[in-house]
Design a protein around this nucleic acid. Structure first.
Lengths: 159, 159
DNA sequence: CTTGTGTGGTTGCATAATAAAACCAAATGC
DNA sequence: GCATTTGGTTTTATTATGCAACCACACAAG
């Protein structure tokens, strides 16, 4: 088999999310959807991508339950693509990507926009990882554990 | 030109991070690197990917300043690939991807591992977005603003 | 209701990326 | 010194991407 490898059966949750989001366009489509874009042509013109691959991506996102098709809200017979709760749940991923660029990009002056708290207009704080009890955690303060500590879950690859 | 589109000059920080991280393998390579993997063969066997594309990805990650090559720590003449601070800075992205799978995956029972607080062994709390003053923010509480509110920054596309 | 136009795609073709396998040189182990 | 491991590159096949052309249906005007 020479097909592009799929992470579908992988036991690692990161690989699993990349299965749905890990291509060039999906996260940008979702970004636009979070901005309120709903129509095919609007995605196409804002992202400047080929229509056939947009169609393929939208289909894939719908299959993955990230977008859903709905009748157009303006009464026309066309359809719209709207985010599901699962789709809206990607928001922290987009924030993390954004903050990573803001912090480490080699040409930060080329970055056009910042994410701000709407009420105060001030930049959003960096995402931080915390323990259940609220303690701030650094990467080294965390570790990976088997999901069910003694029920014989075993699958491929690490995670 | 029919080349794969590049997001390099894009003004959106999300597109910019995807330029470096947005392919099938890069984030998984970084995941392994965060686990302590440093050697070519170790990446290759753990990820089960073709050697040529691993070589290409490692080269790309080095070019992007996410990995750096270093002489092997065990005294041998081989080299190692180690994360830079920029590379370690992707940690929140991986956490966000992981938590998204944990929350929304259709078959969560197939997920093998969970991220836990090392001290207590309890799951890490969901990433949350906060304002500078500590207020918890929902996506709708945030908005996008031009980076420099009145210095005439203008580039392509949204963000 | 007929004609024109915009929307939302699909199809065909050229090129680029990915994958598997073969190959290879340098480093290492014996 | 010789076999093996390591860390790749090369070759070739297949898949994905990107552009342009095409097309069906909705809609609007007359």
């Amino acid at each position: 088999m020479v097909k592009r490898t799929s992470f579908e059966g992988d036991a690692c949750p990161i690989a699993r999310s990349l299965e749905a989001l890990g291509d060039w366009w999906s996260l940008l489509i979702i970004r636009e959807a979070l901005f309120g874009v709903r129509r095919f042509g609007e995605f196409q013109s804002k992202l400047g991508m080929a229509k056939n691959i947009l169609a393929a991506r939208l289909r894939s996102l719908v299959e993955h339950g990230i977008l859903a098709t709905a009748p157009a809200s303006d009464g026309s017979a066309y359809q719209e693509y709207v985010l599901t709760p699962k789709g809206r749940g990607t928001f922290p991923i987009l924030v993390a990507l954004r903050q990573w660029s803001e912090e480490y990009d080699d040409h930060p002056e080329e970055i056009a926009t910042i994410l701000v708290d709407r009420e105060k207009g001030r930049p959003v704080k960096k995402l931080e990882m915390r323990a259940e009890d609220g303690r701030l955690l650094a990467p080294a303060d965390t570790t990976i554990r088997p999901r069910q500590p003694s029920k014989g879950v075993s699958r491929s690859r690490s995670g």
